[in-house]
Nucleic acid binder design. Structure first.
Length: 525
DNA sequence: GCGATCAGTT
DNA sequence: CACAACTGATCGC
């Protein structure tokens, strides 16, 4: 992995000129000043302690994000453990937890120290010098909301936007709506319409233009009532000039409207932000990803661990359809249920609908969303009559024995049994990775529930191949590449100079593991 | 009633 | 247990 990365060979103001948050550095930051190389180098050099990323240039960067999930946090475990000791408070169950930083935005000391909840609170970025307000002798356990005000500190201030949501050398952010106005940001990109990415977008949004795919734009307008003036729909595979950069959205193979975002800066740098995506061969063959190298790759690392293996979506769909047919043959009055979040998993129930030649029933709010896609082959199969179709789509959270039993009763006698599928990426195991037929359902009376490994994120090997193509895959593409491979057992596909994970970054251990994988993938460069 | 935040669920 | 993504409760305005 080259630390002498693109900064050296790029004449344009580059990542070296940016502060730790990826925006033009202020000279006052000693950390930034000491840093001779790029933004992404800082990221890696920081190891498990992200405090080196913070600098003092941006006071807001020192603030915690009380409302965010682990995947949106960074932190330092060393600092954190000493603070736990200092305060005599139990460690959270999970690796992580916040470390000292300014408590200006904290609602309580629990939040300030990141020890609030023993659940998936990631870590905060570890600034080793706690703010003055921490030096008091409060009882951390007793303080709840209001503690900040009592300390005489300003109450409400927006959360700080994490650096990995900012695109260096640009006024762009990606999926950063919960931080209010982000300093230096004049174009807000939204990768796709899932809650954890659009969070913070409401009809009151007024901080700048929102760039997203046409379909995502429609959903933002329809479901969130965001003022159209702020919504800038971009067609896929079309190059746009936005604030001096060339921007192209690519199909992300995640949920409807989800896009990869390809940035070409005027100085020559090329960045790719995957949003959430499932890598595929056809994606790798996209002309924009075939030529040139990627200087920075923002990667959806949801399943960036070799233990995550799952079959192709096609294989899972085959399995689901076959299973449905078998159950219907045995019991013609079977109700087939597919669980789904707001958007996503459409192909699972569409395939069942087509194979069984039945319409798809779902409630009015989902019907409205599905129709908005403008997909005629889906729209024409949607029914508003729950008795008329043996195929129902329900919120995935409601797909459990208790609910399904009740649900079956409400359909009085029209159906006698339920066969339900929960399509989710974490339905994985060594066995089901290869042999779908080994999946065993959970059955209770007339209710049968299958968890099926239908993922809309990349598996570990798909991630690896996206970054570094396996030689065999290339033999149909270009003879010259094959010759090159002859001298190098691996050949880079995207050949990113740096990879910035965007998921699972709240946990130092997982961050380190991911870095080790990235190093392995990139080492032949 | 609405939005922000936090807690809990699958 | 994983995990992303959601759902519900509570609080403040």
């Amino acid at each position: 992995m080259a630390t002498a990365d693109g900064d050296a060979d790029c004449p344009h103001p580059s990542t070296a000129d940016l502060d730790d948050n990826g925006f033009p550095a202020e000279p006052s930051s000693p950390v930034a000043a000491a840093s001779s190389s790029g933004f992404a180098d800082d990221f890696y050099r920081s190891g498990t302690d992200w405090s080196s990323l913070r600098g003092t240039s941006s006071p807001r960067a020192l603030e915690r994000e009380p409302g965010t999930k682990a995947k949106e946090r960074g932190g330092g475990s060393l600092v954190q453990s000493s603070l736990f000791q200092a305060w005599g408070i139990e460690r959270p169950r999970r690796e992580g937890g916040g470390a000292g930083d300014s408590s200006l935005v904290q609602r309580s000391l629990f939040q300030a120290w990141g020890i609030v909840r023993p659940r998936k609170e990631g870590v905060s970025s570890g600034d080793s010098s706690p703010s003055p307000s921490h030096s008091g002798s409060w009882s951390a356990r007793k303080r709840r909301r209001g503690g900040i005000e009592e300390a005489g500190v300003a109450a409400k201030k927006p959360l700080a936007c994490p650096f990995y949501k900012k695109i260096p050398g640009t006024p762009f952010t990606v999926d950063a709506f919960r931080y209010g106005e982000v300093e230096g940001c004049s174009a807000y990109f939204l990768s796709h319409f899932h809650h954890d990415h659009y969070g913070g977008l409401t009809k009151k949004w007024c901080h700048g233009p929102i760039y997203c795919s046409v379909l995502t734009a429609r959903l933002v307008k329809m479901c969130l009532s965001v003022n159209s003036d702020y919504i800038c729909p971009l067609k896929l595979d079309t190059e746009y000039d936005i604030e001096g950069a060339k921007v192209t959205l690519l199909e992300a193979n995640h949920c409807p409207g989800a896009a990869l975002i390809h940035f070409q800066l005027s100085g020559g740098k090329t960045y790719l932000h995957t949003g959430d995506f499932r890598a595929s061969k056809s994606m790798q063959l996209h002309p924009l990803l075939q030529r040139g190298r990627i200087n920075l790759l923002y990667l959806d690392t949801t399943y960036c661990n070799p233990k995550y293996k799952f079959p192709s979506q096609e294989d899972v769909i085959d399995f689901v359809v076959r299973t449905a047919q078998i159950y219907l043959k045995k019991q013609p009055k079977t109700l087939i249920v597919v669980g789904a979040y707001s958007i996503g998993k459409e192909n699972v129930y569409l395939a069942i609908s087509q194979a069984l030649e039945v319409p798809i029933y779902t409630d009015a709010s989902r019907r409205r969303i599905l129709h908005s896609f403008g997909w005629s082959n889906l729209s024409e199969r949607i029914s508003s009559c729950n008795q008329s179709s043996p195929l129902h789509v329900l919120p995935i959270g409601s797909v459990n024995h208790e609910n399904l039993k009740k649900y079956l009763e409400t359909l009085n006698q029209r159906f006698l049994a339920v066969l339900a599928f929960r399509p989710t990426g974490w339905t994985f195991s060594e066995a089901t990775g290869k042999h779908l037929d080994l999946i065993k359902p959970s059955s209770n009376g007339s209710i049968t529930i299958y968890g099926v490994p239908y993922s809309e994120h990349s598996s570990f090997t798909e991630l690896r191949d996206f970054v570094m193509v396996n030689p065999q895959i290339l033999h149909c593409c270009d003879i010259i590449w094959i010759l090159t491979i002859g001298q190098c057992s691996h050949w880079q596909f995207l050949r990113p100079q740096k990879i910035i994970p965007t998921v699972n970054v709240g946990n130092a251990t997982s961050r380190d593991k991911m870095q080790a994988h990235f190093r392995e993938w990139l080492k032949c460069l």
